[in-house]
Nucleic acid binder design. Structure first.
Lengths: 160, 160
DNA sequence: CGCGATTAAGTTGTGCACAACTGAATAGTG
DNA sequence: CACTATTCAGTTGTGCACAACTTAATCGCG
């Protein structure tokens, strides 16, 4: 079997170039396709992710959205302000806990879901993959993300 | 076989949530690990990609770097200025074609390669994948990117 | 040769990601 | 109950991605 140790550093630098770049490129290609498909909804791709979460839960605190999308308030606060300015969500401080801000769909935000229903099918068609392949790729990527998120930062500084 | 057409719109919105988010999350997880590993080199991940290309070619026009990384001058110009400020590259207009700017490694930039040699191995180890799995994932992502880049923008507006 | 079309790099403006920080509210401990 | 620690949202600053545009150089056709 071809183990990591059997590959010399020099080749590894090239292999690395390929894998890191491939993921980078695939993500940007996906973003480009979504950008086009979401143009008619007036949403960016991250805004669409937030709307997907809200369409499932109707209302959530900022923290809840952040947990589901793995985004912090530094990213979400301005994004949610833009969604509010577009009239798709409302934000108000929770009466129970004044630290928390509850984000809730407006009528327009709820209605937007109907217009968004056709988007994912068109994206999936653009990938040229069937449902099983999509699911398999998703599972691989999820497993990868879990492993990468679990990496001890200190283990990367020294040669592991 | 489970075709795209056999999945209702409602489920599709959820499936979509999973695949688009998974890629997004995996990319950000990768970025996080690279950020940590590249901290000692003083490089960001996109700057590292540019350095990888230059370590292979020593010098290239901005356009050449852009073609290899699929990035435009709007992204590269400021990035290359930062690499120049860090002392890793030099930029000078080409005498043959005054429109073109040639980016060349400095001594420091060339030397940095030695410090970078250990990085990809540590990243690969963090993924928990062996060489074959990495290669397979890369091939899938490349094929996906090619298909997504080839999508006709007009086909996404209307329901394809 | 002359002049419009194209090409290269850079600039500007918008939006996302993330680190580091602030300020306000709540939780927990003695 | 008082006081510290934590939590939540927001702000600031840096950097990347990309669209739209500008400027300067080159190309190519008549």
């Amino acid at each position: 079997m071809e183990t990591l140790d059997s590959v010399p550093d020099e080749d590894f630098l090239r292999l690395d170039h390929q894998i890191c770049f491939s993921l980078h490129a695939a993500t940007r290609a996906f973003n480009g396709v979504y950008r086009e498909a979401l143009k008619e909804l007036g949403l960016t791709y991250p805004q669409y992710l937030v709307m997907l979460v809200l369409w499932e839960h109707r209302e959530l605190p900022v923290k809840g959205i952040g947990e589901r999308l793995r985004l912090d308030s530094g990213t979400l606060s301005p994004l949610l302000k833009r969604l509010e300015a577009a009239g798709y969500v409302e934000r108000r401080r929770s009466p129970q806990d004044e630290r928390s801000v509850t984000v809730r769909l407006t009528g327009d935000g709820t209605a937007l879901r109907e217009k968004a229903l056709g988007v994912p099918r068109r994206i999936a068609a653009a990938t040229g993959l069937d449902v099983g392949e999509i699911r398999e790729l998703r599972e691989r990527l999820d497993a990868l993300a879990v492993r990468l998120d679990a990496v001890d930062p200190d283990a990367l500084g020294a040669c592991g």
